[in-house]
Amino acid sequence: MAEPFVGPSAVAERGPAVPGRFDRPGIGTFLAYLLAIAFFVASIDGIGISVEDLVAGIPGIGRMIGQMFPPDLSRLDSIALALLETFQMALVGTVFGIVLSLPLAILATRSQTPHILLYGCSRALISLFRTVPDLVWALLFVIAVGLGPFAGALAIMIDTIGFCGRFFAEAMEEADHGPQEALTALGASRLGRVFCAVIPAALPSFIGASLFSLEKATRASVVLGLVGAGGIGIELKVAMDLFSYAQAATIILSIFLLVLVVERVSTFLRQRVI
């Protein structure tokens, strides 16, 4: 005789207990969450958020925007030259930064480094370059080599080494181990293995990180001008200090255009190459 049909609900009744949707946090985790929320609330209080000040400031912003239009195009040629210098600074700094970050990244990759001491030193150097803000590097280089775009390019180079060094090392760490094993098995040197198996595997990440660092450097090079490290930043500062908002508008729009073009070209290249 056939057994009576047992429906899903009946199975559920006698089956194992269904685990809860979420794990109940332990007392330590709960206290950590509580502390984080309390610190965030204290931070809001600490920075003195004031809705009244924000509302009162809106007419001032409106007035400034009103004075910005129409933008003043009388100094367009010198603004264009400063813009070109800004991009040159970003490009040269980024390219040198990328080139120098490659050997440093190889040393900072645990699976490729020739010695653990070199690994530690290169990781520390990359961390230093990455954690100190580019504006601080720019101030240091302005003191070292004087005012101008060279100081800015050096600051961008150091910042790029910090950024690309870390991403390149991570990409090489994640590279497929199979081709590396094949190169090892046929007696290739360490350098041969890195250049033949590791770098080709990590190349899409290298290109992505390099293009992103160019975009980042283009934006940063605008700000670096504010501390005298060349580029269009100083033009913007002077225009704002002299309340020439119409001229500032031209500068801001041209910066926007430059950053937009670099981002578009970068996206196009990333799609084509990767």
């Binding site: 497929d176 199979g178 081709p179 094993e181 094949a182 046929l186 080709p200 595997a201 190349l203």
Partner: peptide, 13 residues
């Protein structure tokens, strides 16, 4: 010479 199960060639080359 060592031939691997998953050939272990360098894909992008």
């Amino acid at each position: 010479g060592f031939v691997f199960q998953r050939h272990n060639l360098v894909p992008r080359l």
